[in-house]
Design a binder for these strands. Structure first.
Lengths: 342, 342
DNA sequence: ATTGTCTATGATAGCGCTAACAGAATTATC
DNA sequence: GATAATTCTGTTAGCGCTATCATAGACAAT
């Protein structure tokens, strides 16, 4: 372990390493990238000099010269909803085993923000783009079509992809839940969800849910929407409100597990028999639910698989291999303890 | 709205826009960056041509030429612990109002991984680095010292910073909680936490906690450690185990709120009077707690403020302004319903 | 020796932009 | 009307790397 060199004023370049090791810049470059034939003796000299100087290659120059960038743009609506960090984690895991590096951008569910984040990211000429959802501004679509790199739209499956797509049909997920609820004998069904017109996935689940109910001749008996605040608290509050207003409800469907968990805790705390008096279900399959006193019925959104599959498509395509254009994952209904009356 | 142009085979460059608009590349560059004087007429021609062609500037070339990069490296241990996405969200918020763009890297609490992520990030010559914790490999420290950009170490305050530092004293946070517990009259105290030797912040809290107890002549009566799995579930399980093993415990301190919440739910479900029989406290002040039947005593880790302050330091420094070298935030003890016996 | 085949290294020419300066066009000043 | 000041636009020369081709040396086959 040599002690670190004194802080350089002028930033180090290949030339410095080249001079320090007595070989050409080209050879240094070869050694540092492990490319081409270099004798062991030179290799040693160079790595030694590079380490001694504390040289860090300049990828900007490298990328410009080689026209290759190892970045993958990953664009998601939010970090507050645990779903997205989980997707990111999976993407990370997969890309860790490749030369690729994810770069994250957050849109706050705003199409214009998405467009600007995308523009910014594309200007770094990434090797691929993973982006949540299918709804984008015209300009954003055009940029992605023109970018000439693999684009993977994730999470949602209901719509026309630009390039590749990985996700679950949100509409169908809503449908399946509705069908399971009907089959379990519930008829007086309330819905609670976010009041976020730009969360297209929640919207599509809701649409699928209502459609399936309509097919069975059932209408949603009551509904509540919220925005902002702690989801768990909102779940309690909305559940209290909806049950006070519509005491006849026998089932409550929540558009996500956090508000569902809030609702469940409310029912348990207030002596409401679940699912005897009221059945409950959420969506996402968040890990949190396992720790609750009762297991909330939910549907696993397969977000880890989604992240993996998307990253694998980018990785494969960037290696020149081909990869699936469409990966449909099937969310599994987990009945838990709140859907089937025993 | 002109329809998008046909997908170009050869990627567009400034030259294409220059030719399309009949001015020099330099003028196009000026228009696109809003820099220097350009007549309105030319400006219009250029923006029009750029939009029509769907030109996206190449920041790689731009950065190389200008020696300016608008990226800020943000390095955190994990995305699974909500604390970090929350910090990222705040960093994002602040940087959104600047020309800077965060780039995230995840280390999985591994020093070697941190070193490699850091190396990778520094090779893009970012305008600043925000990195969690004060513990790094020697090589990592050397790289940061040599990088000649602002470095902000966050979350923790107990140790020697490389450059700037923003956080809370974890040791002191542990101390304060211990003191509050003692003051409330508890004497038989159990501890539960992660078994992660590399989570230095949890370790320091634990140390501060034990020290303060020792000062009062108290020793930790029993303890449990976990790793992996759903924290809420682990909280239940550990609580059950520790209470069975040491029925005399009158207080349980959890190293984070998720396991604390699990413990609280376990106690409530099993008719254990909280805080009459057993007092409880966690750490972090996660929003989730607000939705629980009882409010768990905790300490707000100020992670939003940490993110904001760190990003503001980078932003200020990158504008050439000066900024604080050390920001100490004071975690506030929130007593909730589980610490003070009424 | 002659030619060919490797292996190891170097020289050259950009990658697509922008900094810095130069110059043309326009307006102001006396 | 001449000069200076003020726009505006263009020219040149890199930024720090890598692709590509050239070349020198080592060795083998002929």
């Amino acid at each position: 372990m040599s002690s670190p060199s004194t802080p350089p004023k002028r930033p180090l370049t290949l030339r410095d390493v080249s001079e320090a090791s007595g070989v050409s810049e080209m050879t240094v470059s070869r050694v540092l990238r492990n490319r081409g034939d270099v004798s062991d003796a030179t290799r040693l000299k160079v790595t030694e000099a590079a380490k001694r100087l504390g040289y860090v290659p300049n990828k900007i120059a490298g990328a410009l010269a080689s026209q290759r960038v190892n970045l993958v743009a990953v664009i998601i609506p939010s970090l507050s909803n645990m779903v997205f960090p989980e997707v990111l984690t999976s993407i990370n895991e997969v890309l860790d085993e490749t030369p690729l590096q994810p770069v994250f951008g957050v849109t706050n569910y705003l199409p214009e923000k998405e467009e600007s984040v995308l523009f910014e990211m594309l200007s770094w000429r990434p090797s691929g783009v993973i982006i949540a959802g299918l709804e984008h501004t015209d300009a954003a679509r055009a940029m992605m079509r023109n970018a000439d790199v693999p684009i993977v739209e994730i999470m949602d499956l209901d719509g026309d992809p630009i390039d590749a797509i990985v996700g679950v049909s949100q509409r169908r997920a809503g449908r399946e839940m509705a069908e399971a609820i009907i089959k379990a004998g519930y008829r007086n069904i309330g819905f609670m969800g976010t009041n976020m017109p730009l969360d297209h996935r929640a919207r599509k689940r809701f649409e699928g849910f209502s459609e399936a109910l309509a097919d069975a001749g059932i209408e949603i008996a009551d509904q509540e929407f919220y925005s902002g605040g702690s989801a768990l608290v909102k779940g309690r509050e909305m559940t209290e409100a909806i049950l006070k207003r519509s005491p006849g409800l026998d089932f409550l469907y929540y558009s996500n597990d956090m508000i569902g968990a809030g609702g469940l805790l409310y029912c348990l705390a207030n002596g409401i028999d679940v699912p005897g008096q009221v059945g409950l279900a959420g969506f996402n399959g968040v890990e949190l639910l396992n720790g609750l006193p009762k297991q909330l019925a939910t549907m696993d959104a397969e977000r880890h698989k989604i992240g993996r599959a998307a990253a694998e498509i980018i990785a494969a395509r960037s290696r020149g291999e081909d990869a699936p254009q469409r990966v449909e994952l099937m969310p599994k209904l987990q009945f838990g303890d709140t859907l089937i009356r025993s």
